[in-house]
Amino acid sequence: MNRNDCNLRSHLGRIHNMVEVMYTSQRQQRATRSNQIKPEKKREFHEAAIECIIRDGRPFGDFHRPGMSKFLNVICPGYRGPTRKTVRRRLGVEYHEYRQQLRTTLARVEAIAITVDIWTKNKTSFICLTGHAFNRIYESIPIVLGFRQFNGSHRSKKIKKYILYELKQLEIENKICAIVSDNGRDIKKATNDIKPGQRISCIAHNINLVVQNGLGLWEKSTKK
Protein backbone atom coordinates (compact mmCIF):
# COMPACT_ATOMS: atom_id res chain seq x y z
CA MET A 1 0.00 0.00 0.00
CA ASN A 2 1.39 3.39 -0.99
CA ARG A 3 1.04 5.64 2.02
CA ASN A 4 1.28 8.75 -0.16
CA ASP A 5 -2.14 8.19 -1.73
CA CYS A 6 -3.76 6.15 1.06
CA ASN A 7 -5.65 9.09 2.55
CA LEU A 8 -6.69 10.32 -0.88
CA ARG A 9 -8.14 6.94 -1.86
CA SER A 10 -9.92 6.68 1.49
CA HIS A 11 -11.39 10.17 1.01
CA LEU A 12 -12.61 9.40 -2.51
CA GLY A 13 -14.22 6.18 -1.35
CA ARG A 14 -15.90 7.55 1.79
CA ILE A 15 -16.95 11.00 0.64
CA HIS A 16 -17.43 10.57 -3.11
CA ASN A 17 -18.42 6.89 -3.09
CA MET A 18 -15.59 5.97 -5.50
CA VAL A 19 -15.10 2.55 -3.95
CA GLU A 20 -13.18 1.21 -6.95
CA VAL A 21 -10.15 3.40 -6.19
CA MET A 22 -9.87 2.19 -2.58
CA TYR A 23 -7.39 -0.44 -1.50
CA THR A 24 -8.75 -3.90 -0.61
CA SER A 25 -8.18 -3.38 3.12
CA GLN A 26 -9.99 -0.03 2.93
CA ARG A 27 -12.99 -1.61 1.20
CA GLN A 28 -13.12 -4.33 3.86
CA GLN A 29 -13.06 -1.74 6.65
CA ARG A 30 -15.78 0.22 4.87
CA ALA A 31 -17.97 -2.90 4.57
CA THR A 32 -17.49 -3.71 8.25
CA ARG A 33 -18.44 -0.19 9.31
CA SER A 34 -21.49 -0.17 7.07
CA ASN A 35 -22.73 -3.32 8.82
CA GLN A 36 -22.47 -1.83 12.29
CA ILE A 37 -25.82 -1.42 14.01
CA LYS A 38 -26.76 1.67 15.95
CA PRO A 39 -26.76 1.12 19.75
CA GLU A 40 -30.47 1.88 20.14
CA LYS A 41 -31.38 -0.60 17.39
CA LYS A 42 -29.11 -3.25 18.93
CA ARG A 43 -30.85 -2.79 22.30
CA GLU A 44 -34.21 -3.17 20.58
CA PHE A 45 -33.10 -6.43 18.93
CA HIS A 46 -31.66 -7.74 22.21
CA GLU A 47 -34.90 -6.99 24.07
CA ALA A 48 -36.90 -8.86 21.43
CA ALA A 49 -34.51 -11.83 21.55
CA ILE A 50 -34.62 -12.03 25.36
CA GLU A 51 -38.43 -11.83 25.34
CA CYS A 52 -38.44 -14.69 22.82
CA ILE A 53 -36.21 -16.75 25.15
CA ILE A 54 -38.57 -16.12 28.07
CA ARG A 55 -41.82 -16.81 26.21
CA ASP A 56 -40.61 -19.91 24.34
CA GLY A 57 -38.45 -21.33 27.14
CA ARG A 58 -35.34 -21.31 24.96
CA PRO A 59 -31.78 -21.87 26.26
CA PHE A 60 -30.05 -18.63 27.26
CA GLY A 61 -27.37 -19.01 24.58
CA ASP A 62 -29.77 -19.89 21.75
CA PHE A 63 -29.28 -16.65 19.80
CA HIS A 64 -25.50 -16.99 19.91
CA ARG A 65 -25.24 -20.45 18.36
CA PRO A 66 -23.46 -20.75 14.98
CA GLY A 67 -26.57 -21.54 12.96
CA MET A 68 -28.65 -18.80 14.58
CA SER A 69 -25.79 -16.30 14.25
CA LYS A 70 -25.56 -17.01 10.54
CA PHE A 71 -29.31 -16.61 10.13
CA LEU A 72 -29.33 -13.30 12.03
CA ASN A 73 -26.45 -11.99 9.93
CA VAL A 74 -28.43 -12.73 6.76
CA ILE A 75 -31.59 -10.91 7.84
CA CYS A 76 -29.70 -8.12 9.63
CA PRO A 77 -26.00 -7.90 8.64
CA GLY A 78 -23.76 -7.03 11.55
CA TYR A 79 -26.14 -8.08 14.32
CA ARG A 80 -25.15 -10.79 16.79
CA GLY A 81 -27.66 -12.12 19.28
CA PRO A 82 -27.29 -11.70 23.06
CA THR A 83 -24.84 -13.98 24.84
CA ARG A 84 -25.82 -16.26 27.71
CA LYS A 85 -24.22 -13.79 30.14
CA THR A 86 -26.23 -10.88 28.72
CA VAL A 87 -29.51 -12.82 28.99
CA ARG A 88 -28.76 -13.93 32.56
CA ARG A 89 -27.89 -10.38 33.62
CA ARG A 90 -31.03 -8.95 32.00
CA LEU A 91 -33.28 -11.56 33.61
CA GLY A 92 -31.72 -10.77 36.98
CA VAL A 93 -32.61 -7.09 36.55
CA GLU A 94 -36.17 -7.90 35.47
CA TYR A 95 -36.61 -10.31 38.40
CA HIS A 96 -35.62 -7.68 40.98
CA GLU A 97 -37.86 -5.10 39.30
CA TYR A 98 -40.78 -7.55 39.41
CA ARG A 99 -40.19 -8.33 43.08
CA GLN A 100 -40.17 -4.64 43.93
CA GLN A 101 -43.42 -4.07 42.03
CA LEU A 102 -44.86 -7.11 43.80
CA ARG A 103 -44.07 -5.67 47.24
CA THR A 104 -45.72 -2.39 46.25
CA THR A 105 -48.87 -4.21 45.08
CA LEU A 106 -49.06 -6.43 48.15
CA ALA A 107 -48.64 -3.47 50.49
CA ARG A 108 -52.11 -2.30 49.37
CA VAL A 109 -53.71 -5.71 49.97
CA GLU A 110 -55.36 -6.34 53.33
CA ALA A 111 -55.71 -10.14 53.06
CA ILE A 112 -54.45 -12.77 50.64
CA ALA A 113 -54.98 -16.50 50.09
CA ILE A 114 -52.10 -18.59 48.78
CA THR A 115 -51.85 -21.80 46.79
CA VAL A 116 -48.87 -24.16 47.05
CA ASP A 117 -48.06 -26.85 44.53
CA ILE A 118 -45.13 -29.19 43.88
CA TRP A 119 -44.61 -31.32 40.80
CA THR A 120 -41.83 -33.33 39.22
CA LYS A 121 -40.84 -33.52 35.56
CA ASN A 122 -37.88 -35.49 34.23
CA LYS A 123 -36.73 -36.17 37.81
CA THR A 124 -36.60 -32.42 38.54
CA SER A 125 -39.03 -30.97 41.09
CA PHE A 126 -40.47 -27.45 41.22
CA ILE A 127 -42.47 -25.58 43.82
CA CYS A 128 -44.80 -22.71 43.01
CA LEU A 129 -46.46 -20.26 45.38
CA THR A 130 -49.34 -18.16 44.02
CA GLY A 131 -51.45 -15.51 45.71
CA HIS A 132 -55.11 -14.57 45.28
CA ALA A 133 -56.47 -11.26 46.54
CA PHE A 134 -58.92 -8.45 45.79
CA ASN A 135 -58.16 -4.78 45.40
CA ARG A 136 -60.32 -1.97 46.81
CA ILE A 137 -62.82 -2.21 43.95
CA TYR A 138 -63.02 -6.01 44.34
CA GLU A 139 -61.07 -6.93 41.24
CA SER A 140 -59.30 -10.29 41.47
CA ILE A 141 -55.50 -10.11 41.62
CA PRO A 142 -53.78 -13.44 40.81
CA ILE A 143 -50.06 -13.17 41.57
CA VAL A 144 -47.06 -15.48 41.23
CA LEU A 145 -45.31 -15.08 44.58
CA GLY A 146 -42.50 -17.56 44.04
CA PHE A 147 -41.30 -20.28 41.70
CA ARG A 148 -38.21 -22.34 42.45
CA GLN A 149 -36.53 -25.61 41.66
CA PHE A 150 -37.02 -27.87 44.66
CA ASN A 151 -34.03 -30.10 45.34
CA GLY A 152 -34.01 -33.21 47.49
CA SER A 153 -36.93 -35.04 49.06
CA HIS A 154 -40.23 -33.19 49.61
CA ARG A 155 -40.00 -33.00 53.39
CA SER A 156 -42.58 -30.92 55.22
CA LYS A 157 -39.91 -28.88 57.04
CA LYS A 158 -38.30 -27.83 53.75
CA ILE A 159 -41.65 -26.92 52.21
CA LYS A 160 -42.65 -24.91 55.26
CA LYS A 161 -39.29 -23.14 55.35
CA TYR A 162 -39.61 -22.09 51.71
CA ILE A 163 -43.17 -20.80 52.13
CA LEU A 164 -42.31 -18.79 55.26
CA TYR A 165 -39.22 -17.36 53.56
CA GLU A 166 -41.24 -16.06 50.59
CA LEU A 167 -43.99 -14.65 52.80
CA LYS A 168 -41.44 -12.81 54.93
CA GLN A 169 -39.57 -11.44 51.91
CA LEU A 170 -42.85 -10.03 50.55
CA GLU A 171 -43.94 -8.79 54.00
CA ILE A 172 -47.30 -10.61 53.92
CA GLU A 173 -46.76 -13.23 56.64
CA ASN A 174 -49.55 -11.65 58.75
CA LYS A 175 -51.98 -11.19 55.85
CA ILE A 176 -52.60 -14.86 55.00
CA CYS A 177 -56.27 -15.83 55.30
CA ALA A 178 -56.14 -19.28 53.66
CA ILE A 179 -53.65 -21.80 52.26
CA VAL A 180 -54.72 -24.20 49.48
CA SER A 181 -52.81 -27.37 48.59
CA ASP A 182 -53.34 -30.95 47.52
CA ASN A 183 -53.45 -33.83 50.00
CA GLY A 184 -49.84 -34.95 49.75
CA ARG A 185 -48.54 -35.96 53.18
CA ASP A 186 -45.59 -33.57 53.35
CA ILE A 187 -47.26 -30.52 51.81
CA LYS A 188 -50.35 -31.08 53.96
CA LYS A 189 -48.28 -31.16 57.15
CA ALA A 190 -46.27 -28.10 56.08
CA THR A 191 -49.33 -25.96 55.33
CA ASN A 192 -51.20 -27.11 58.46
CA ASP A 193 -48.38 -25.70 60.59
CA ILE A 194 -48.39 -22.22 59.01
CA LYS A 195 -50.32 -19.54 60.91
CA PRO A 196 -52.33 -17.41 60.38
CA GLY A 197 -54.34 -18.93 57.60
CA GLN A 198 -56.61 -21.94 57.46
CA ARG A 199 -55.54 -24.82 55.24
CA ILE A 200 -58.09 -25.76 52.56
CA SER A 201 -57.83 -28.92 50.51
CA CYS A 202 -57.81 -28.24 46.75
CA ILE A 203 -61.33 -29.00 45.45
CA ALA A 204 -60.12 -29.70 41.91
CA HIS A 205 -57.62 -32.24 43.26
CA ASN A 206 -60.30 -33.90 45.39
CA ILE A 207 -62.70 -34.21 42.45
CA ASN A 208 -59.92 -35.72 40.37
CA LEU A 209 -59.28 -38.33 43.09
CA VAL A 210 -62.99 -39.17 43.35
CA VAL A 211 -63.32 -39.67 39.59
CA GLN A 212 -60.16 -41.74 39.23
CA ASN A 213 -60.94 -43.93 42.24
CA GLY A 214 -64.57 -44.29 41.15
CA LEU A 215 -63.53 -45.47 37.70
CA GLY A 216 -60.78 -47.67 39.08
CA LEU A 217 -58.12 -45.92 37.02
CA TRP A 218 -55.47 -46.52 39.67
CA GLU A 219 -56.07 -50.23 40.08
CA LYS A 220 -52.97 -52.22 39.23
CA SER A 221 -53.23 -55.39 37.21
CA THR A 222 -52.55 -58.60 39.15
CA LYS A 223 -51.68 -60.54 36.00
CA LYS A 224 -48.09 -61.66 35.62
Rank of each mutant, 00 (worst) to 15 (best):
Q28H: 14
T191H: 06
Q100M: 11
V109L: 02
Y165I: 10
A31N: 12
Q101A: 14
R90W: 08
E219N: 05
I179R: 09
K168M: 02
D193C: 13
Q198D: 06
N213R: 10
F126S: 07
P66A: 11
P66T: 05
I194G: 06
L145D: 04
S25H: 01
I179M: 14
K175W: 09
I143F: 07
S140H: 11
L91S: 11
Q29A: 15
K223W: 13
G184Q: 13
V87M: 10
G131W: 10
K195A: 13
I176R: 08
E94N: 01
L170Q: 13
R9T: 01
P82M: 02
A48M: 14
L164A: 04
K121Y: 04
N213E: 12
G197W: 09
S25N: 02
R43I: 13
L102K: 00
R3E: 04
V87F: 09
K168F: 01
E173S: 05
S156K: 12
D56K: 09
K189W: 01
M68K: 09
D186A: 11
L164E: 15
W119Y: 03
T86L: 09
I159C: 02
V109R: 06
G146K: 07
F126C: 01
R88Y: 03
L91P: 10
I141M: 12
C202E: 01
N208Q: 13
A31K: 12
I200L: 15
E110W: 02
E166P: 00
G13A: 11
N35F: 11
E94T: 03
D62P: 00
K41E: 14
E40L: 12
L12C: 11
P59V: 09
H11R: 15
I176K: 08
Y165N: 11
V21H: 15
I53S: 11
C6M: 02
I203G: 02
N35W: 04
G146W: 04
S69Q: 12
N135S: 01
E173H: 01
S140W: 04
T222K: 15
L91D: 06
G57Q: 07
